[in-house]
Design a binder for these strands. Structure first.
Length: 272
DNA sequence: CCGGACGCCTGTCGGC
DNA sequence: TGCCGACAGGCGTCCG
């Protein structure tokens, strides 16, 4: 489900309502997610006060007055703020009752997501250490991208999904950004000129920024922390548009498979 | 080191 | 109607 724009949408929804609140009660399903639940979960969460909600790649970083919680939504995870009488979602794995009576609910049917607790600084967390630059920050630019891909033989689509090249891009936005930059997903990293990298960086920034403004993309079941869907799927140019006319040249959007995942592109106007 | 395949889960959808 | 396979927004691991 969630790529960078969706996780950022959740973060923006949580931040004003969560910061300053204290955890009064903790309930955990105990069902194993991607990694095992931390030891002493109840003790390490109860009584903690939220002080900051940040995002790195597709991870949510929740800071407490003492300690921190790392959260990843996987493919089907959902973090929502519920009022006291709201019904609880199916497949809920963690429920934090707050001192104002609201509740933070983490649900994840497929259990590809994860939650971890740490007392160390974020930059020391092993899951965050090898992640590349944030695409919306100045450290991500054409020179960085060119250097990261110029010796790589993999298709550029695969490289965009590699979080050590650039953080937070998933299947939807890799496809949309390559379409916008007029670069075929099959192009080898080593074939990209500096100029093509500049176009791609611009396209990534543009697509992600517009997706965040729309509240993310809801294909099936994504919702923000308030339960509302995102509307960026209405602006897709190629994703899940197999057979449709290309909005740029009138060619036919084609679907291929790369690394077992669907890629959509226009063979007529995306440079092979 | 690199690249590709696989597995982890559940839910949904299309074809027969 | 029901069953079965394919597929879905991610990502770490394993093997050649």
């Amino acid at each position: 489900m969630p790529e960078l724009p969706e996780v950022e949408t959740v973060r923006r929804g949580l931040e004003p309502l969560l910061c300053g609140r204290t955890i009064a009660a903790v309930a955990c399903s105990g069902k194993r997610l991607r990694i095992p639940w931390p030891e002493d979960l109840h003790r390490r969460l109860t009584g903690r006060r939220f002080t900051a909600i940040q995002r790195r790649a597709k991870y949510l970083l929740l800071d407490f007055d003492e300690g921190r919680m790392l959260c990843h939504l996987g493919m089907s995870g959902c973090l929502r703020l519920l009022r006291a009488n709201d019904p609880l979602p199916a497949h809920q794995h963690l429920l934090l009752t707050l001192d104002d009576g609201n509740r933070l609910s983490y649900a994840d049917p497929r259990r590809f997501g994860m939650i971890d607790l740490t007392d160390r600084p974020w930059e020391e967390h092993c899951l965050l250490r090898h992640i590349g630059p944030e695409p919306l920050e100045a450290s991500f630019h054409d020179g960085h991208l060119h250097e990261a891909v110029r010796h790589r033989n993999s298709p550029i689509k695969t490289l965009l999904l590699d979080s050590s090249v650039v953080a937070g891009i998933g299947n939807i936005y890799a496809n949309e950004a390559l379409f916008t930059a007029s670069i075929a997903p099959t192009r080898r990293g080593s074939d990209l000129t500096r100029e093509a990298c500049r176009r791609l960086v611009d396209a990534i920034r543009s697509v992600l920024t517009r997706a965040i403004a729309a509240g993310g993309s809801t294909i099936r079941d994504f919702t923000g922390s308030d339960g509302r869907p995102g509307y960026f799927a209405h602006q897709f140019l190629c994703y899940e548009k197999e057979g449709a006319p290309c909005p740029r040249c009138g060619g036919t959007i084609t679907r291929i498979k790369q690394q077992g995942r669907a890629s959509f592109f226009c063979p007529d106007c995306q440079e092979a």
